[in-house]
């Protein structure tokens, strides 16, 4: 279903801009995606009245944000950053340092988190010259180097080094939850926009065939750097929100490779290049993860490892593709 609609969107750019808007609203896929975003916000906005474990809700939202970030980077441009968590950590530390060292308020702190991760993304943008596994692992190395930088005693004066961050001065469970909901809303809206805008189309054109995209007048370097920055900003925002909610953390906690891998698997399992895929992927897999954790904790890691293997082998294109093929068969 989604795949067919994508082709529909693909026909748009040639037409005049006035028509595009009407077409956009006639486009079932766009309306569907926007509805998904709204439902999502609604569910989390009222989430605490039916789920008492607020941190579970926060973690779900944070992973959705990260999975959407991976979606932008991998789904739209084909770059899979294994070290994606580097931006998450940069955002968390942007929040922590600005609030506890420079005593800005929590909201400017969230902005600082995004800014720091964007700066890191710009510094790392030369990595975009690499492809495939090279890029994946180089980004991982960058994230690992970043955590060593943050926890080094020479950085103590700024980051509090190995002693970790404590945001008790801005601690506010209600406001930090609401901010995370808003952050998820912004990120989802950004993905909806990306998917349906000419910019998103340019990205997919590059992903499909870089040289013909360049020949048709797309500035490949600028466009993909911009996507990379958006993706990093998403992770930074997620990291800043997480930092605010969790309040006390060590460098290793917000730069953990597991966070990257989870976000990647959630996005892949749901289906990349779609709006709804990373969301569904996160709900299902993080749900399963927590269910295993509560019921059979002793086999936690084994089951999860095998689950990853099974997903890659049997649902390599994600749930969205399964949905599409089922729908396709039914409508035939």
């Amino acid at each position: 279903m989604l795949r067919d609609d994508e082709t529909l969107v693909g026909e748009i750019p040639g037409t005049a801009s006035k028509d595009r808007v009407t077409q956009l609203f006639r486009n079932r896929s766009f309306v569907g995606d926007a509805a998904v975003a709204l439902v999502l916000i609604g569910v989390f906005a009222f989430g605490r009245s039916f789920e008492a474990n607020t941190l579970l809700l926060v973690n779900l939202m944070v992973y959705m944000i990260l999975a959407q970030g991976i979606n932008v980077s991998y789904g739209f441009t084909g770059y899979l950053p294994f070290g994606f968590v580097g931006f998450f950590g940069a955002g968390a530390y942007g929040m922590a340092v600005s609030t506890s060292k420079f005593h800005v308020g929590a909201y400017p702190g969230l902005v600082a988190g995004v800014v720091v991760s964007v700066v890191v993304a710009l510094i790392l943008s030369p990595l975009l010259r690499l492809r495939g596994s090279y890029f994946a692992i180089a980004s991982l190395a960058a994230a690992e180097a970043l955590v060593l930088l943050v926890s080094n005693p020479s950085a103590q004066g700024i980051t509090n080094g190995a002693y970790g961050a404590n945001l008790s001065s801005v601690f506010n469970p209600g406001a930090s939850y609401v901010s995370t909901v808003v952050a998820l809303g912004l990120v989802t809206a950004a993905v909806v926009w990306l998917k349906h805008s000419p910019f998103g189309l340019a990205l997919r054109a590059i992903k499909a065939d870089r040289s013909s995209a360049a020949m048709s007048g797309i500035n490949v370097v600028r466009v993909r750097t911009f996507a990379w920055v958006i993706s990093a900003a998403m992770a930074g925002l997620g990291g800043a929100c997480y930092a605010w909610v969790i309040s006390v953390f060590y460098p290793g906690d917000v730069f953990s490779l597991t966070t990257s891998v989870f976000a990647i698997i959630f996005a892949l399992f749901g289906g990349i290049g779609t709006v709804v895929g990373p969301i569904v992927g996160t709900v299902v897999l993080y749900g399963i993860y927590n269910a295993i954790g509560i019921t059979v904790p002793q086999y936690f890691q084994l089951i999860y490892g095998l689950l990853i293997v099974v997903i890659v082998l049997f649902v390599p294109r994600g749930l969205a593709s399964l949905g599409a093929s089922v729908f396709g068969r039914m409508s035939r």
């Binding site: 989390f44 906005a45 469970p173 406001a175 939850y177 609401v178 808003v182 809303g185």
Partner: peptide
Amino acid sequence: AVLAAACGSSSKTT
């Protein structure tokens, strides 16, 4: 819409 929803949630919080 996000903000509206979030405000709703904010009152829920209390």
